[in-house]
């Protein structure tokens, strides 16, 4: 399978500190890949290695089938966490400049920059100097510099931090649009709602080491399923039930039970058992763990261990 991005056993050390520790993952084209971790987890360092801003001490990185470098950079888009612009350049010139640095011809860069800024609602501000733009407008210009070359691999480092709600929506549209167009999108974040809404797959990172890599469902499956049952008897004896707790009387001899299944057990199996054994039920409600819970559970326990 062709991958837009592949890391294999990548290690990066700064002095005695290991910032990235044997990191491996791959992102195919058209996928939105979330790179999740707390502060200092190694997200930015990993992305910098992908962009060839810094070099790994060990392992290998393959970007769009090549080693990282500025030549492959022509097909990359990057929006860093720390964002700025040349204050004395106009909005249009800024986007054109980044387009040209990414190998576009002057004409193509100008046409594409105009179209993007127009789409972002900045057609009246093409010739406005950046220092005269509002913060929200400047954020749109920054986004335009990242996608001016219609990248095959779009890398976004904490892209939603500092964005106003309008620009958050704009960015989400760009991410999904880019993925629909066949681009791989890798973005780092520690805001789980964005990852939950956008990511096809995600990677959890703590202290430079990978804790999880997979789909959202696979991530959720790492936590025990939680159910809310209303039954006449305690379901503790059923196969796969880890624990039960009575939550109160539901009337007419019925009791509300909170049930936690063993990790990896399917709530559907429990329902099937109840039916087969004739366990009467008035309610069977499954509580799906959020990514936030998964993150806290996986990353949090790793933090505690360290």
């Amino acid at each position: 399978m062709n991958h837009s991005l592949r890391l294999d056993g990548v290690v990066k050390r700064f002095g005695d500190r290991t910032a990235v520790d044997g990191l491996s993952f791959a992102v195919p084209p058209g996928e939105v890949f979330g790179f999740l971790g707390g502060n200092g987890a190694g997200k930015t360092t990993s992305l910098r290695m992908v962009l060839d801003i810094i070099r790994p001490d060990a392992g290998s990185i393959e970007v769009l089938g090549h080693a990282p470098g500025r030549e492959v950079g022509r097909r990359l888009g990057f929006l860093p966490e720390e964002r700025g612009l040349y204050r004395s350049m106009t909005a249009l010139d800024t986007v054109v400049y980044f387009g040209r640095l990414k190998g576009m011809s002057a004409v193509d860069a100008r046409v594409r920059a105009r179209a993007l800024l127009d789409r972002f609602g900045l057609s009246a501000n093409l010739k406005t100097n950046v220092d005269k733009l509002s913060k929200g407008m400047a954020q749109k210009v920054q986004l335009a510099t990242a996608v001016v070359n219609a990248p095959d691999l779009l890398i976004l480092d904490e892209p939603f931090s500092g964005l106003d709600p309008v620009n958050q929506g704009l960015l989400e549209d760009e991410i999904t649009g880019a993925a629909r167009g066949g681009a791989a999108v890798v973005f780092s974040t520690h805001v789980m709602q964005h990852a939950e809404r956008l990511c096809d797959r995600l990677l959890l990172l703590a202290h430079g080491a990978k804790l999880f890599d997979g789909t959202q469902d696979e991530a959720r499956a790492m936590l025990p399923a939680r159910l809310e049952l209303v039954a006449r008897t305690d379901p503790a004896g059923l196969d796969g039930v880890e624990s039960t707790a009575a939550q109160g009387d539901a009337g007419d001899g019925w009791t509300r039970w909170r049930v936690e299944l063993s990790p990896g057990r399917d709530p559907g199996d429990l329902l099937q058992q109840c039916t087969a054994r004739g366990v009467p039920l008035r309610r069977f409600e499954q509580h799906r763990p959020g990514l936030h819970d998964v993150f806290i559970s996986i990353v949090g326990s790793a933090e505690v261990r360290s």
Binding site: R70, E81, L85, Y86, L101
Partner: peptide, 17 residues
Amino acid sequence: VEERSNKLIEAMLACVS
């Protein structure tokens, strides 16, 4: 000093060495 003071350095280094 411009790229550093304007927080542009990473965006630039993604395009140029």
